[in-house]
Amino acid sequence: MTTLSEQDIRKIAHLARLQIPKDELKVHGENLTKILNFVEAINTVDTSDIKPMAHPQNLAQRLREDEVIETNQRELFQKLAPLTEAGLYLVPKVINNTEEE
């Protein structure tokens, strides 16, 4: 049986970038533990020869021709943004060095 501790919840919440108030860690831990135990049932079947199914359709992806169709809609899109300047979206200073992923 899987049991998730408050520490586990803290770690998961960080990965998912969700702030969870301290006093809610426990109840989230309990709920997630219940859910994980509910889904444990999948382990009652041997699936070693089964190919995983990621899509309901057993089809190939359809591809698009290389054409530029989109036009500049910056003004429209940035009307929705909480904070912009000089056409850029602003976020609190990224301390991490410039990273190219």
Partner: peptide
């Protein structure tokens, strides 16, 4: 991955 296999079943 296991859930995806169950999905196929």
């Amino acid at each position: 991955l296991k859930a995806q296999k169950i999905r196929r079943l």
